[in-house]
């Protein structure tokens, strides 16, 4: 179902294809053995969406986020969320400047291209919601003054799905703002071996050169919007969304926002695969990333969520 290496002839209309592939290859060197996840992360950013990475500590969440920022030539800030972190710690504070007798705004880490929100579920809901405006509107309001964030702006958040003690699980409204959710998982044996043999990750990260300019990246984002979505594909998208709403497996179906995210994410995936049109396979490849954190299994179902999502994909025929 998941094909990143399609060898079918394509028209190759996307701009800066070589640079994009070089960027992906560069990230692959740092985040070893996670080609598919790396591409999903790229597609998520190309679709102009925020990314939630959910996994255990130490599987390379931060490294992936960092590498993405560096290879795209974007500014990168990281916040380690704790339960005593305040909104001002993210957005910034206004401080009285005695020298010129005025209030100066000291921008917080949110004023960057890529914001890595580590362990986002450790922060209080108040702080989490401070991120909401930034994620949704690409702007923040401090002391009644609205300030735009740099473009592009991404939040790459991570959270630990196992250790729930002292956490504030993200509400559905906030989860819905993340275009995609990824699980990295443990590396395979070969990748692990390579990881153990190779140099320090931090050192490697610093050696990553930007492969794309911000302008080129924005061109690519524009190209995603031009990927053709045929009626036949829309039929399939709608069938999937409708099934999630009608199905007995989930207590709530996919929202219209989720539908839009799915379409855009699939288009970005098509572009990554050098196609100017979106195929059912693209939708299937990105669907778990879009649906995984949005669908809520009905209470009493023991089946893991990922299996339910796979089941949904299996149940809905391609029209």
């Amino acid at each position: 179902m998941l094909h990143t290496d399609t060898t079918l002839p394509t028209s190759g209309v996307a701009p800066h294809t070589q640079q994009l592939h070089a960027a992906m290859a560069a990230v692959d060197e740092v985040v070893i053995g996670k080609k598919h996840q790396v591409r999903l992360a790229f597609a998520c950013l190309l679709a102009d969406g925020h990314l939630l990475i959910e996994d255990r500590p130490g599987v390379g969440k931060t490294t992936l986020a960092h590498a993405l920022a560096r290879v795209l030539g974007l500014s990168f800030r990281r916040i380690q969320f704790t339960n005593d972190i305040l909104p001002a710690d993210i957005i910034g504070v206004t401080v009285y400047n005695r020298s010129n007798e005025s209030f100066d705004f000291h921008p917080g880490p949110v004023f960057s291209h890529v914001l890595l929100a580590d362990e986002i579920n450790r922060a209080t809901p108040k702080t989490q919601s401070a991120l909401l405006e930034a994620m949704g509107e690409h702007q923040v309001t401090v002391d009644g003054q609205t300030r735009s964030l740099p473009e592009p702006f991404f939040v790459i958040a991570t959270q630990n799905p196992i250790d729930f003690a002292g956490t504030f699980p993200l509400p559905d409204s906030q989860l819905d703002r993340f275009l995609a959710r990824l699980e990295l998982g443990y590396p395979g044996a070969d990748a692990e071996r390579e990881l153990l043999k190779s140099k320090d990750r931090q050192h490697l990260l610093k050696s990553i050169e930007p492969k794309l300019t911000v302008e080129q990246f924005r061109d690519l984002q524009g190209a995603v919007l031009k990927v053709n979505v045929s009626d036949a594909l829309l039929d399939y998208l709608q069938a999937l969304i409708q099934y999630s709403r009608d199905s007995q497996l989930f207590s709530a179906g996919l929202s219209p926002r989720a539908g839009l995210a799915l379409q855009r994410f699939a288009c970005a995936w098509a572009l990554l695969n050098d196609r100017d049109h979106c195929l059912p396979e693209d939708v299937q490849a990105v669907f778990p990333g879009v649906a995984g954190h949005r669908l809520r299994p009905i209470g009493g179902l023991d089946t893991p969520k990922s299996e339910l999502v796979d089941q949904l994909l299996k149940d809905v025929p391609i029209p």
Partner: peptide, 12 residues
Amino acid sequence: RRPNEGPIDYAT
């Protein structure tokens, strides 16, 4: 062909 099998997966 499975009902949910896309054309490229099928071709592969």
